[in-house]
Design a protein around this nucleic acid. Sequence first.
DNA 1: GCCTTTCGACTGACCGGTCAATCGCGCCCC
DNA 2: GGGGCGCGATTGACCGGTCAGTCGAAAGGC
Lengths: 220, 220
Amino acid sequence: MSTQGSRLGRTGSRSKNSEQKRRQILAAAVRVFARQGFHACRVSDIADEAGVAYGLVYHYFASKDEILDTLFLERWNVMLELIGEVDAELIPVRDKLRAIASFIIDSYAHDPDLMKVIIVEVTRAANSFGQTHLAEIREAYDLIERIVGKAQAEGLFRPEIDARFAAMTFYGSIEQLLTGWIFGLLPEGEEQFERAKSLVVDTICGGLQTRTAERLSARG
Amino acid sequence: MSTQGSRLGRTGSRSKNSEQKRRQILAAAVRVFARQGFHACRVSDIADEAGVAYGLVYHYFASKDEILDTLFLERWNVMLELIGEVDAELIPVRDKLRAIASFIIDSYAHDPDLMKVIIVEVTRAANSFGQTHLAEIREAYDLIERIVGKAQAEGLFRPEIDARFAAMTFYGSIEQLLTGWIFGLLPEGEEQFERAKSLVVDTICGGLQTRTAERLSARG
DNA sequence: GCCTTTCGACTGACCGGTCAATCGCGCCCC
DNA sequence: GGGGCGCGATTGACCGGTCAGTCGAAAGGC
């Protein structure tokens, strides 16, 4: 955990092959964590999957925990950066939210195992890694909240819905869709992913009700 | 797991005290699971918390797993029943969804530890208990999907948003709010809970956008 | 009314297995 | 020939589940 920073700094020529091995172990860990779960798998499973000796895992990582930390942080930081960039662009809120939803869903489409691990083992693990990475998780919510808040200030989003609640609702919806795919409760596939992007943004921004129904319920 | 049914059937005078002990252990387990997590805690922690001997836990439950199974199923079945009843009532969709959101949020308000355990250790645990109880979890989504589907058939909800997606979005939003409270990322309190009920239904049914913004984006 | 038998509630030391992490040793590239 | 890379047997801690036995209250015999 503490030595991780210095390790990431290496870029010498000697380490080219070395870095490759490191990635090999990380990639294997993703598959194993996704298949068996972090707690249920053994470090030897990761070594076997990577095709390396048990001890080599400990040559590259200080602990089993550090492997998961690395996987999470690498991906999560990319997401935080993207959300920041998206927010800075001069595009409608709806497009910003769609860009965020797209990024997360594309991440899943591109590497389902990694996203499964991140969500199941970190983002929603209140008693283990969720606590460890609370600050990073919170930052994502904060960034989304800011986007919603700005839209409210501009009169584009209804002001009576708390921005923090809205951010949680938006992010929660996306994560739940991934969960549906992860659990096999929702059909996967490229068209499904594309549909999901539209539908989640449509739902959160526009609501499920027809405008007719809205008028009716407002009257009642 | 298998002996549980017969045990519940007993109602003799001797077993009155016995049932009390059983509940004592379950209540202690909720606190311990919530505090340390299912994997991180030891059975002896539960016994200590309950103020009983280690072995007694195994007198009442076949395994550590069975304790969690019991906790989950007892609560989840109440929820499934409630959703079924709500769906049968002759009230507007919005009220149905609000009733479901209320039930889940009230469950959290009444026993945060139990809901934390259910969500963190079962509902979102794709590699352990989530798989074990997949059928029960799926049933909840199915029931909500049916409610949404009916509203679409009646022309109250927009038909172009897949009912299953909508159900996942709705349920995911609620679970994410609970997650926010569990992680300490959202302020708790009775007024907060009440606000949350309104806001989640408002958001999902009505959407975040103002109608003005909607007209603008439809034009673009 | 008293003694004995019975049986379930209850106890906690112990066992067997598991697994993260270490260590000391070869190997091979620079 | 030296230092990182790679190896996997070993260690030691930990924990779920077992089990042999105690205790006390109810049932039953006299």
